[in-house]
């Protein structure tokens, strides 16, 4: 099914290390153009590390990682973004020495077709009029919106979104879920790491399950929704 679509990201037998500690043990997965794919898994399974390895933040790595045919392993870390990859980290990464406007415009534009400020404020009305506020003075939900907004501005068309709803109130989660549906409708390709299954299944096409640095299972969204027992067994809930 989705495999007939154009392949964008391909990870094959990807290994990576934090210093001496071997974290990814041969991760294999792929993402097609326009898909929203989640990575599920217990704490410490290696979901964040997978994203950090794709972005080149984790430098010690082996195996194959390609985006649109470009070899990510051979790409210097500051050139990865120019391939269209936008990273929204789990800890959000809002800078305390920058105000909201500076945080929003920090990442350089990498491709044409990024969102303008009015589109961003339409997506996240909370951010409007907050330009001079210190970035980290925003609420957790607003920081998450800012972390997403600054990437959408750059024109990145492949977004890595790490636990966007972690620790947020249900109303804010709903807002972020709506934003995600819009991003998908815009044709962006997205990898989503998420603990909240309701949120994950609302917009995703496929799901991977990771454990101990490897992909151990894969579901289409329909299968996941109809077979919650299997995923719950993986996640140990």
């Amino acid at each position: 099914m989705t495999d007939s679509r154009e392949r964008r990201l391909e990870l094959k037998g990807l290994h990576s290390w934090y210093g001496e500690s071997h974290v990814l043990h041969g991760t294999t997965l792929h993402v097609n153009r326009g898909e929203v794919v989640t990575i599920l898994g217990r704490n410490g399974a290696g979901k964040t590390t997978t994203m950090r390895t794709i972005m080149g933040i984790v430098r010690k790595r082996k195996g194959e990682a390609r985006l649109d045919g470009h070899d990510l392993i051979a790409t210097p870390p500051h050139k990865v973004a120019r391939l269209g990859l936008g990273y929204v980290p789990e800890e959000r990464g809002i800078f305390s020495s920058l105000n909201v406007a500076e945080n929003l415009t920090l990442p350089p534009v990498v491709k044409s077709g990024g969102m303008g400020l009015d589109e961003i404020y339409e997506l996240f009305p909370n951010l409007e009029g907050r330009d001079k506020t210190v970035g980290t003075r925003l609420s957790g939900g607003e920081q998450q919106m800012l972390a997403m907004a600054r990437i959408l501005r750059t024109g990145a068309d492949f977004i890595l979104l790490d636990e966007p709803t972690e620790g947020l109130a249900p109303v804010i989660v709903d807002e972020i879920a709506k934003a995600l549906v819009k991003l998908k409708a815009l044709g962006l390709t997205i990898i989503l790491v998420e603990q909240n299954l309701k949120f994950a299944t609302a917009s995703a096409d496929r799901h991977y399950v990771m454990d101990q640095g490897q992909v151990v299972d894969e579901f289409t969204n329909e299968r996941l929704v109809s077979d919650m027992a299997r995923i719950n067994a993986h996640l140990g809930v």
Binding site: I57, P77, H78, G93, F95, S96, L106, P108, T154
Partner: peptide, 11 residues
């Protein structure tokens, strides 16, 4: 504050 994130943004 966070060099590796700034680098991941393409700087």
């Amino acid at each position: 504050e966070n060099p590796s994130l700034v680098q991941a943004f393409g700087i």
